[in-house]
Design a protein around this nucleic acid. Structure first.
Lengths: 136, 136
DNA sequence: GTAGATGCAAAGTATTTGCGACAAG
DNA sequence: CTTGTCGCAAATACTTTGCATCTAC
């Protein structure tokens, strides 16, 4: 079991306000990848006084602190998810919008190799697969 | 040598207006990945009467017709490039912003395999590597 | 007590759209 | 001719920010 978001805030010197606690809690409980608006709605159910500006500020702060990961999948709005130990990529169902998380060590290794080949040190990457479900 | 953008328009039944010809020409001559604003500036030098709304409408149309590829690299604005036979992915220098195009058949194959594994047919994908140049 | 956080509304970006005039097939 | 396109400006969508107030540490 990895650290909670609150623990991460403490260890990174991020001030723990009530609003941030609520946002952290909601993100921890979300197994999907909500966009800011959706997150704002979920947060509002717990504390309706939290403004959307705070949600925007908080997800940005959490992202910079390595607590959340930001994704810009097709279609405009940024979406967030809690960042835990295991890195993973995404397979997106283009019909339903469903997102499957996966890890493929071999692809990871090859990516590093490609970067090396061009004289680069890989610092980040983005891999998204878009697919349609096969009839089984 | 592959088809010109104008030929593609004809074969796809896209009406060839003067504006579209200019935008097609500029994109063909661009070896980088301009965003809409940059494209608009280049286009304006040839025909200053073309509006940015038309540029937006045209890149969208070209993208839907499979003539241009749209990329949403980190940092807001969408960027476009001409879509030719050879598919490729991108390695982005996080310091200079320089973009290197590469192809790695093995990664392509593995991606398809991952999708299959989850019962999906791969219809699209996005792979971006972000790196910093090593001192040589 | 003080630096930093919040709420609100206003301001920014990037992109889309309604509409009357116009042009391609 | 007729359908679709263009230019313009207004509208939209998402995100950021200035400022006065408030709060965690």
């Amino acid at each position: 079991m990895s650290e909670t978001i609150e623990q991460k805030c403490l260890s990174k010197g991020v001030k723990l306000t009530d609003q941030r606690k609520v946002i952290a809690q909601v993100m921890s409980q979300s197994s999907d990848h909500p966009d800011v608006d959706e997150l704002y709605h979920r947060v509002s159910k717990i504390d309706p006084k939290i403004s959307i500006a705070t949600v925007y500020r908080t997800v940005k702060l959490f992202e910079e602190s390595g607590i959340l990961a930001k994704h810009e999948f097709k279609g405009g709005k940024a979406r967030y998810e809690e960042l835990n130990e295991g890195h993973h990529d995404h397979l997106i169902d283009v019909k339903s919008g469903e997102i499957i998380e996966f890890v493929d060590e071999e692809i990871e290794k090859l990516q590093k190799k490609v970067a090396e080949k061009y004289g680069y040190k890989l610092v980040d990457h983005k891999l998204e697969l878009y697919g349609i479900k096969k009839k089984s």
